[in-house]
Design a protein around this nucleic acid. Sequence first.
DNA 1: TCGTATGATTGTGG
DNA 2: CCACAATCATACGA
Length: 381
Amino acid sequence: MEDGQRMYSQQGGLTNMSGNVLPQYNMGQDEPSDQRKQEIGDILQQIMTITDQSLDEAQARCRKHTLNCHRMKPALFSVLCEIKEKTVLSIRNSQEEEPPDPQLMRLDNMLIAEGVAGPEKGGGSSAAANATAAASGGQPDSAIEHSDYRAKLAQIRQIYHTELEKYEQACNEFTTHVVNLLREQSRTRPIAPKEIERMVTIIRKKFAAIEMQLKQSTCEAVMILRSRFLDARRKRRNFSKQATELLNEYFYSHLSNPYPSEEAKEELARKCGITVSQVSNWFGNKRIRYKKNITKAQEEANVYAAKSAAAHEGQGAAGYNVGGGQAGMYMNLNGGDNYQSSDNSVNALRHVISQSGGYSSDSMHSTPASMYEQHMNQQLQ
DNA sequence: TCGTATGATTGTGG
DNA sequence: CCACAATCATACGA
């Protein structure tokens, strides 16, 4: 037990600076008193200087020939570690179990959905393509935008991955560094393996927080990219000829009631390769513009009618009356869903408009009425 | 390059 | 929520 005592004494001597333990250092040794005095003086000097030194220097000087080689050291340290674990570590450990951050999960999900995170190219770009295809109806000319969008997304993806890799590397480097440092220190102070473990989790948490910031900013970048590329108002594309034809067909064949049901909209959307809301938009625009043209034509017709009436003293008004004022909002002359009859009214309108040089819309001139007539005739037969 | 066409959005009313 | 009306922003043809 003598050695153990000595050890305690040394510890105490170094840490507490209590002078009364120092004489024990050379206890039991047979030396001349002046030499002992000299030694004691040296040790005192050493202790005095130690307080001014950094820990590293002190360790470098002291550990090898004092603590480190002592045979009781492991036992002592293990006891100290045990005490430590029972007091501080156990309290902290109990708080460590945390559920996964919902915010982080949301970010992760979004990144995977956008094709930034998750499996390589295939899934990612196709997800992006699907998103854009849904917005623009999968027209061939939108391919350019898609590739542009994909390129930007790939750029974001690359930045994200390189940054993530960097973080991971830095995290690992730092972790190993800290672990090594702690292992090194565990030779001179009691450090439990659990303590190192805890330190590692703390570091990982810190880096996870940084990673989350990266994820957040990546999500923001993707959102900005999306809004820029998928904002159809900014990058409007006309529907394909076929789609417009189908829509017009439906519109003119249901002119008395151009309000497609939800099912009809879905059907049209499917046929045209556009979304239901696009169909709704189209019909909304179509109705209002058609009506506008009617009223405009009507006004003009009335102007001409008035002129004509003045000129012919009340004879020719009927000739300009397109559809008549009582024909209803959508000029359903024959009162039914008869495409041909309504097309006639369109032809009449075209005639009036071309004569008056007034406002003309697509339904009036750029889409040949005969086209619809032919089409409808085929369908009706 | 300009004017028109056209798809989308916004504001309003029922 | 839907329809309508006005408006925006872009596409497109002459």
